[in-house]
Simulated assay, not measured.
Amino acid sequence: MIQKPYHVDLQELMRVYETNYAKLNALLPSRPSKDDVRCYEAAAMMYQLQIEEVTKYTTLVTICQSDEFSVFPLPTMSVRLYHDARVAEVCKAEQLHQVRAKYEYPNNRMAQKDEKAQLNRFLGDWLTFCLKHGISRTPINVG
């Protein structure tokens, strides 16, 4: 079986970025500043959005699952919002310190060929879930 090389669907990826930007802005403060934290509870899980960096054209947000009594490492990702383009993209997730547009497969980190697209679609699904079912809470731990 011959495998076709993976090609990034740029139009689809940009659509995901644009919708993620709108959804994420609905969960963040209207005028974010560094170290602002928002916490949401959805389906008995707590999620924190922490503003890491604010510049004139971008905002960097760390999104993590938080739990007071967690024994295991919890999922974390960094998302950069580009305000001039009105898009948000996952730029870091778990073991990937920089998410590339595509990966050769197999690879040492076992990233999928379309890892970036999958992470950004997951972010969109998660944001939709939080907007529909999330309840704002006081942050558990900051830092």
Rank of each mutant, 00 (worst) to 15 (best):
N25P: 03
L28K: 10
E115F: 14
K4I: 03
V79A: 01
V16E: 08
N25F: 01
D125Y: 05
V142Q: 08
I135W: 15
T128H: 07
D114L: 01
T76G: 10
R38F: 06
V37P: 02
N107F: 01
L74Y: 02
D36T: 14
W126A: 13
D114H: 02
Y82A: 03
N20V: 00
T128P: 05
L123Q: 07
E115P: 02
A93P: 04
I51G: 10
L96T: 05
P29M: 06
A117P: 11
I63E: 13
P73L: 05
G143D: 09
R137M: 03
T59M: 00
L49V: 01
H133K: 13
Y21M: 00
R121A: 14
N120M: 14
R100E: 10
V61S: 10
R109M: 12
Y40N: 00
Q112P: 03
L119D: 02
D36G: 13
A93W: 10
F72G: 03
V54C: 12
P5W: 11
A88D: 06
P32Q: 11
P29E: 12
L74H: 09
R38Y: 08
C91L: 07
V87R: 14
V99Q: 13
N107Y: 00
V71L: 05
R80L: 10
P32I: 09
D36K: 12
L81Y: 02
E53T: 03
A111D: 08
A117H: 05
V54F: 06
Q118F: 14
Y17L: 02
Y6K: 10
T138C: 07
V8G: 12
E12D: 13
Y57I: 10
M1W: 02
C39K: 01
K132P: 09
K113M: 15
A26Y: 06
S30P: 15
A26H: 13
L49Y: 02
R86L: 01
Q112K: 12
C39T: 12
P32L: 11
P5E: 13
Q95P: 03
E41M: 07
Y103A: 11
Y82E: 11
L123H: 09
K34N: 15
M45D: 14
I63H: 11
C39V: 00
A111G: 06
K34P: 05
N141V: 07
F129A: 05
R137S: 03
L74R: 04
Q65C: 03
L131E: 08
R121G: 10
T55M: 11
F129V: 01
A85P: 15
Y105W: 15
R121T: 14
S66P: 00
I51Y: 08
M77W: 08
R109L: 11
F122M: 14
A42Y: 06
E18I: 01
Y103V: 00
K116R: 14
D36C: 09
K113P: 05
Q95Y: 07
E41S: 04
V90N: 04
